[in-house]
Write a protein that binds this DNA or RNA. Sequence first.
RNA 1: GGGCAGUUAGCUCAGUUGGUUAGAGCACUCGGUUCACAUCCGAGAGGUCGAAGGUUCGAGUCCCUCACUGCCCACCA
Length: 891
Amino acid sequence: MTQAPEIQDEMPRAYEPGNIEDKWYRFWLENNYFEPVIDPDKKPFVIIMPPPNVTGELHMGHAITAALEDIMTRWHRMRGEPTLWLPGVDHAAIAAQVVVERQLAAEGTDRHQMGREKFLERMQQWVKECRQTITNQHKKLGISCDWSRERYTMDEGPSRAVMTTFQHLYDKGLIYRGERIINWCPRCGTALSDLEVDHMDLSGHLYYVRYPLAGESGSIVVATTRPETIVGDTAVAVNPNDDRFKSYIGKNVVLPAVNREIPVIADEAVSTEFGTGAVKITPAHDPVDFEVAQRQNLSFINILNEDMTMNENAGPYQGMDRFDARVAIVKDLVESGQLVKTEDYNHSVGHCQRCQTIVEPLVSKQWFVKIQPLAAPAIKAVRDGSIKVVPQRFTKVYINWMENIYDWCISRQLWWGHRIPVWYCLACEEIIISAGTPGTCPKCGSSNIEQDPDVLDTWFSSGLWPHSTLGWPDDTEDLNYFYPTSVMETGYDLIFFWVARMIMLGIENTGKIPFHTVYLHGLIRDDQGEKMSKTKGNVVDPLISMEKYGTDALRFALTTGTSPGNDSRLSTSKMESSRNFANKLWNATRFVVRNIADGQTATEIRRDSLPVEDRWILSRLDRTVATVTGLMDDFQFGEAQRQLYDFLWSEYCDWYIELAKIRLHSTSEDTLSPLPVLVHVLETSLRLLHPYMPFVTEELWQNLKRHLPSDWQQCESIMIAPYPETTAGAIDSGSEQVMESIIEIVRSIRNARTEHKVENSRWIEARIYAGELTQAITPHAPSIEALARARPVSIQDTRQEDGGEENALVLVLTGTEVVIPLESMVDAEAEKKKLEKEIAGTSAEVTRLEARLKDENFLSKAPPDIVEKERQKCYSLINKLERLRQQLLKY
RNA sequence: GGGCAGUUAGCUCAGUUGGUUAGAGCACUCGGUUCACAUCCGAGAGGUCGAAGGUUCGAGUCCCUCACUGCCCACCA
């Protein structure tokens, strides 16, 4: 084991994250804590990290991913499970190619000028730089992933998984090559899948164009948003039940501009409501028309070149750009009198997800995955709960999409990506599928063979990620032990792109689901709720935030107030309060450590002899352990975090430490030192918090460890220390009740001091009448004195009506009363008003409770413990009400 | 056109098998140089939980309707 980094003896006044983060990360790495030890007797916990794209630097989306996955990973590791978190990066075919193409454009060149080989070299170089940046940023985030198992989609293993899958699906008939309508991005020069097209509403026009009947008078008017496609029309379709057009069916019309005759046909797909009720059919450039044409056996006329100029089929418009052709044809239609009218019209237009260019639907020869046979088992796995989706509502979204899925176009006319493992024999036209480079055609023996120039959709390789990273198609130890994985944690925006494909391909390739749970997080927005984007300039850089507030603070801020699947905002105020919390812990530990004398805390905590505040904080700690564990089991990390925050700040620091100070300062030899409990609770809390704030908890824990009993010295790091569990007998409701009373008394005195403007330096007398609680509270008079700055504090059973209270303030509390004689005049009127207000509130509550407790329905239907609770509450409120009323009479 | 989410304090949000008089952070008001912490401490003010119905002994929480906001999906030219 590597020697632990040095801990300063004297802790600085404020936590300075910059000084400690790197040393601990190095220490963890050097000791291989991130690497799991395979133990066949234990069930492992496994997360495969969503691989960031090699498109630049990490953003807040990556940071929340890292934070959540590290929380889960560290938590399970501390619970003693062999825990694997496997990191990786994605070559991101189109996304990365677009980034580098932009760089080339800025340099005044492009990929075609460079040539394929040079361009790929340039890509490799970019990937190298990018991976370095990503790795450094991930390390800065403190994540405990197993770097020895890091994978890259273009590595030999994952690449072989891609080829193997392609071959397998081809052999099974699930991959085919066909001429079908696809989305074409003219800028990227490639086909896109439906998912890679973003639809945006644009304002345009609806043109009404008259098509004259061939050989007779009469005409049909059709409406179109893309008049340039007229030259590619091969029919006009009407609804078969539309009486307006029944007589036209079977006749021919003449296309304007190109004077070609096309038939009028009937098809159910045509709505009688929209436009004129007659639709021009352009099978090669519209997905709906494509389907109509298939049904009706119509011909296809491609009118576009790949650069989106009109081709030889466009007659007079040949050579024009698609949008120039639109203008030209409209002009011609106006001149020929065939444009009936033009309406303003907003319609949705597809844009390339990566470069925002308007895409064009066109018929093209591409490779497709026949998806339904893959979708069926993937639907089943989620529907029957084999794969659990958190939050559950996304189950419906997933199933709905999967049930309406179309075949997946997987070929891309890009250069960057996995080359399609297909060779064509130029001699006999044989199609050869091969992972390696085949020398000759196996059918005719010709060596005149050529590889398909295209690459695969990047999501094809990502879809294999959970098994390809673990060694598939080989039968590896990792694959056998770690697969299926435990949790797939990612953003909800990736359900279709990625999650669905991993489930389909995972089941197909391995026969097993790829993961048991899908945890989906929301988008991180800016403090105004806007999506962060470079163009808006509202991007918050994780590195800068980490520099400024510390890694723990950024991570804590990201998971503050989040719940699964919900978007959240990141604000400086969240990062500040998270930083403040880290500093609070720092100082609490600083306080504890300072008070420790060597060996002092080594004593075992003997629960039977502890004062009430010790039993109280131990009881509260135990409840916190139970609550936090329960919430984390349920993936409620934001809420678990809040529970820890509240416990540490509002209970441990605000009350327990303050109470402990009194005993620490005590000169009496009978006083039991609070240090063992002080240390125990802090130490346990640090372990509870470690998955959320790994760095500060490690530093503080190491600091504290030096003072812990010897059996703790063997544990080298908090990150491999056991996660706290509940302790039998720790819950102590009696002590909790007494402490609640003490807190109430202290608060009421403080409040009275403030309201009556008692200077801080002045001590005031307080007489407490505690009834049943007298015995329990009496030993704590010194605590009340110190915390409320009240002296002397006397505690008696019942209040003596012996006068001396003319100018005293009487505070009626839940089970107790506090009398404070004041030198200054008590404003009787004001006190009376306050009392009346409190009486009104209490009395209303009592009325409600009494009614409920008289209600037969309530008594018979509500669970007994609830009834009992309500009854107790009612008693105590009646009692308080009575005392409030008596007090009122005195004014 | 379908679907989903959100609507709780001035702002940002928690509140998960329905069960105290609904919470936090930030902001605000007042007071604090007591030896862990001013990145702090103490005290306070601030909410008919979007609207209207319903189920229930009991509703912020479950059901119905509506309004507004946001998101996703979709082949009406």
